Computed example of a mutant assay.
Amino acid sequence: MIRKIEHVEDKVAQYTDIIMGYATEYGLKILGAVTIFFIGKWVVHKLITLMRKGMVRSHVDETLISFAGNAIYVALMIAVLVAAASNLGINTTSFVAVFGAVGLAIGLALKDTLANVGAAVLIIFFRPFKVGDFIEVSGVMGTVKIINLFSTTLTTADNRSIIIPNGALIAGNIINYTGNETRRIDMTFDIDYKDDLKLAKTIVSDILDAHPKVLQTPESLVAVGALTQNSVQLIARPWVKVEDYWDVMFEITELTKLAFDQHHITVPLPQVVTHVKHED
């Protein structure tokens, strides 16, 4: 009986030594891997924060800051995970190979989505527009609110949100209405052939000269644009700051109508002249 007890105690001691050996060996590796992960994550966070602050001081566009920060964070965190796995004794070479194969399979399955990511890179680096610009693209107009890796969100004048895939967006023509500081307003006023043409030109010119938001340089243009079937067309082309475009256009249109009414200058309606021939 005593021998059996001693045999059991020996077995227990033997297994205890084995467990303690594994715990000592792998416990240190696990502790090292966890330490590498959390320290690496802290370092990555600090680096990204410093990078963002530096880019803000350099007046880099917010869209580029966000995109670069996210991309660098993902890349550095992958490096931290690989380092932690290597400390555990995992063969990272095979891990990288498997990761590459999985990435290739995902890339083939999501090629259209990745095309949107590639288009986002082109948008961010070539900057045909930025957040806050008013653009026309893919048959819609709106203010750019969000540019992410897969799509761009526009807000229309009536406050609708339109989400356009970046691939479709970059493939067509892009009209950026706020890409420059100033913009020209093209306006047309129709007057009757019987009205005083010189007086009408003077009225429009005086309105443009007196408006505080119309720029003096470049100089505004008022001229006869065309002689149509029913009217004489006056064209007015004032220059304004981009943010004043709509306000100035609406105000000048109203002021011109009121001035024309005061000076009895009419806006003719479409007319059809019919000749009736009488026969005996």
Rank of each mutant, 00 (worst) to 15 (best):
Q229N: 12
V204M: 03
K194C: 00
S220I: 02
D196P: 06
D209E: 13
I207T: 04
H211M: 01
D209N: 14
D195P: 00
I203W: 06
I203L: 06
V204A: 09
L197Y: 09
A200S: 13
T228F: 08
K213T: 06
A223Q: 13
N230K: 03
P212A: 06
T217E: 13
I207N: 02
L197G: 09
M187H: 11
S205V: 08
H211F: 07
D206K: 15
D206T: 12
L199R: 09
N230I: 00
D196A: 08
Q233A: 11
I191A: 06
A200L: 04
Y193V: 11
P218W: 07
S231Q: 07
K201M: 14
S231C: 01
D209Y: 08
D209W: 01
A200M: 10
D196S: 08
Q233P: 00
Y193F: 15
G225Y: 10
S231D: 04
H211K: 05
H211G: 05
S231V: 02
S220C: 00
V214W: 03
L221I: 15
A223I: 13
N230V: 04
A200P: 05
L197M: 15
K213N: 07
V232Q: 10
M187I: 03
A226T: 01
D192F: 00
V214G: 01
S220K: 05
A223S: 14
E219N: 09
Q233V: 10
D206A: 14
L197F: 09
Q216D: 10
A200K: 01
P218N: 08
M187F: 03
D195Q: 03
Q233K: 14
T188M: 07
L199N: 07
D196E: 13
I191N: 06
K213W: 06
L208T: 02
N230G: 10
D209T: 07
Y193A: 14
L199E: 13
K201D: 11
T188P: 00
A200F: 12
L197V: 15
K213P: 11
K213I: 02
D196H: 04
V224S: 02
E219Q: 14
D190N: 13
A200W: 06
I207E: 02
K198Y: 10
L221R: 08
G225S: 09
A226S: 14
V214N: 08
A200V: 07
V232P: 09
I191K: 07
S205L: 15
S205T: 15
K194L: 10
Q216K: 09
T217Y: 06
D196W: 12
I203C: 10
L221T: 05
L208R: 02
Y193C: 11
